[in-house]
Simulated scan of single mutants.
Amino acid sequence: MTDASIHTQSQQQEASFGDYFALLKPRVMSLVVFTAMVGLLAAPGGLHPIEAFCAILFIAIGGGASGALNMWYDSDIDQVMSRTKSRPIPSGKVTREEAFAIGMALSVMSVVMLGLATNLVAAALLAFTIFFYVVIYTMWLKRWTPQNIVIGGAAGAFPPMIGWAAVTGGISVESVLMFTLIFMWTPPHFWALCLFMKSDYRDAGVPMLHVTHGRASTRKHILVYTLLLAAIAIGIGFTSVGGLIYLTVALVLNALFVLGAVSIWRRSDADCEADNHKREKSFFALSLLYLFLHFGAILAEAALAPYGLGGW
């Protein structure tokens, strides 16, 4: 037995359940679960509680499968970037082969089981989401274009559409708008993070916008996407999933978000360095709350609707 094989075996013995679970990107999965649940509960009609639980479970597993396949393919750049080098594969806890096998098995299982538990439309949307994230974004866009996060953001925007389809068996204006809310939120959220990161993406050879076009251009893009996002977010307030609660939340949050984007746009690189990117970090922190509070407001409208208190 070679030293390399002995080393590999010892690495595999060190892997714990937590290491394998980390392959599924649990923090990302939590967003998938929450937005899918809101889409499911806001949809007209309803599912039996057991069917609803199964739908959310299989959507979550599908999201985790995407994460495992992403880590399998991106293991080379993950070991270069400081924020990802402790992931299971670059840290040597899990092999690429194991990650691929887990990702593929969970992908097939989640799609088939969601189809059996709900309907073929929801299953097809989940299958397309996994394909889009792994093939279109991870294998193609991420390493090819600075617009990677813009187009690739669609993968993270599908869960509420899947949840809606699990109930209704179709797609509607409301589910498309929930998709668009996440889709338009992703670029300013992620670009704000990029502004105060060091040289991770440059070192890894990933053509993020701030690497290819500079931070000034990135700040301008954040402002443009934030303005477009605000229009979508407020517009949702006038649909069947909106209402006074949602509209109030949307108006306040988007006013703060636009003001933050304008503040970032006006700054120079010297300003950012002088205060250690304080405003960019604040904007990023607000972006984390932004999506949760918007979808939380949609959930509140859906919960109060049976009592005549939610919606219009």
Results as ranks from 00 to 15, higher is better:
D3E: 14
D3T: 12
D3S: 08
S5N: 09
H7E: 15
Q13M: 09
E14Q: 14
E14R: 14
A15E: 11
S16F: 06
F17M: 09
L23V: 14
L24H: 07
R27Y: 10
V33M: 12
F34P: 03
M37A: 15
M37D: 04
A42W: 04
A42Y: 10
G45L: 09
L47I: 11
E51C: 06
C54S: 11
I59R: 01
A60G: 13
I61E: 05
G63M: 10
G64R: 03
G64S: 02
G64V: 07
S75T: 15
D76F: 08
D78Y: 10
Q79R: 15
M81H: 09
R83N: 06
P88S: 08
I89M: 09
S91Q: 10
V94D: 00
E97W: 11
A99T: 04
G103Q: 00
M104H: 05
S107C: 13
S107W: 06
V108W: 04
S110I: 07
V112E: 11
M113L: 13
G115W: 03
G115C: 05
T118M: 08
N119Y: 11
L120P: 05
A122F: 01
A122T: 09
A122W: 00
A123N: 08
A123L: 14
A124C: 07
L125C: 13
F128D: 04
T129M: 03
F131L: 14
Y133K: 06
V134H: 01
V134D: 01
V134R: 01
V135P: 15
T138K: 06
R143N: 01
R143K: 09
I151N: 07
A154R: 08
A154P: 13
A155T: 13
G156I: 01
A157F: 08
P159D: 07
P159H: 11
M161H: 03
W164N: 00
A165E: 10
A166Y: 02
E174T: 10
S175L: 11
V176Q: 07
V176I: 10
M178A: 15
F179C: 08
F183S: 06
T186H: 00
P187H: 03
P188H: 05
W191M: 02
A192H: 00
F196Q: 00
F196C: 02
M197L: 13
Y201F: 06
Y201G: 01
G205N: 04
M208E: 00
L209D: 01
G214D: 09
R215F: 01
K220G: 10
L223P: 01
L223C: 09
V224M: 14
T226A: 03
T226G: 03
L227T: 11
L229Q: 08
G237K: 02
T239Q: 08
G242A: 02
I245L: 15
Y246C: 00
L251Y: 05
N254L: 03
F257T: 01
L259W: 09
L259D: 13
G260Y: 00
A261R: 02
I264S: 02
W265D: 13
R266D: 12
R267N: 11
R267E: 14
D269R: 07
D269Y: 03
D271V: 15
C272M: 15
C272F: 08
F283K: 06
L286A: 10
L289V: 11
L291H: 05
L291M: 15
F292M: 12
L293H: 04
G296D: 05
I298A: 01
L299H: 01
A300K: 00
A303E: 12
P306Q: 01
G308M: 13
L309N: 04
G310V: 04
